[in-house]
Amino acid sequence: MSETQWHVPDEALRRFVADPGAGDGIGAASIEAHLTRCAACRETAASSVDRAALSRSWEALADRIDRPRATVVERLLGRLGFGSSLGRLIAATPALRWAGLAATAVVGVAAVMLSRFAGADGPFLVVAPLAPLAAIAAAFVPTTEPGGEASVATPLWGAGLLLRRALAVLALTIGILALTSLALPGLDVRALGWLLPAVALSFGSIALGTFLRVEIAATGLAFAWVTTLTVLRVLGGAGFSVADSALFDARGQFVLFVVTAVSAAVALTRRHRLGTLEVFP
């Protein structure tokens, strides 16, 4: 880069350094262009810079550059009043990332299409409760924890964080499934019958997850759910309808509510088991 013989007058340079945007734009642009070619003027400019202000400016710039980009879920949690740090910890769970949410949507859409093909709510009522269960299991399995084992040895790790994540997962997966259920054939109130089974299975997996590995608990509950419906199907004979079966009438829903309440109580009572890797070493 060639040096020039002309130099910016000291006063003009001082004003430029103090506030580059204060003068006329053309003059500032000229000085800026000159500084890129003139080492002497750069040195003079550097000597009159407010070091503290420059340091603050750099720190703000670095902070802006380094700030991790917030995900959609993080922004959503922020609007719901969660602090940015807590929002980040909750949103980091794989079930709340795009892939996890997309998987829930795909399951929901597939179940709706099966129901439309069958001309009844049955397939959706069977499949929909399994999606939140899978998402909860994925949120609790330590191998999916974004920080790995290092996370477990930190003060914020434990039941508080995991249960908040579970609630966020449950709320979002249920929301997505509720949206897809709007496309069910002959939509009526019975189509909401999957909600309590979804919550009961999810809470049940968390409660059982304080005794054994959560993925084993979730797999066992999914198997129990499908087995129960198969038995009801066999007992129901030719005219069997999932929506009219014992699981989805008032008594069945009450039983599922009780299962949810008991599971929540067990999970809270045994929450200390979630503070280490004891149940999933």
Partner: peptide, 24 residues
């Protein structure tokens, strides 16, 4: 840990920042 188990989407900064949040 012997096997930290990093999330594949994280940058080095993101990961250390994430652990720092967990460290209050």
């Amino acid at each position: 840990p012997q096997e930290p188990g990093f999330h594949r989407h994280f940058s080095a900064f993101d990961f250390v920042d994430y652990i720092a949040i967990l460290k209050e």
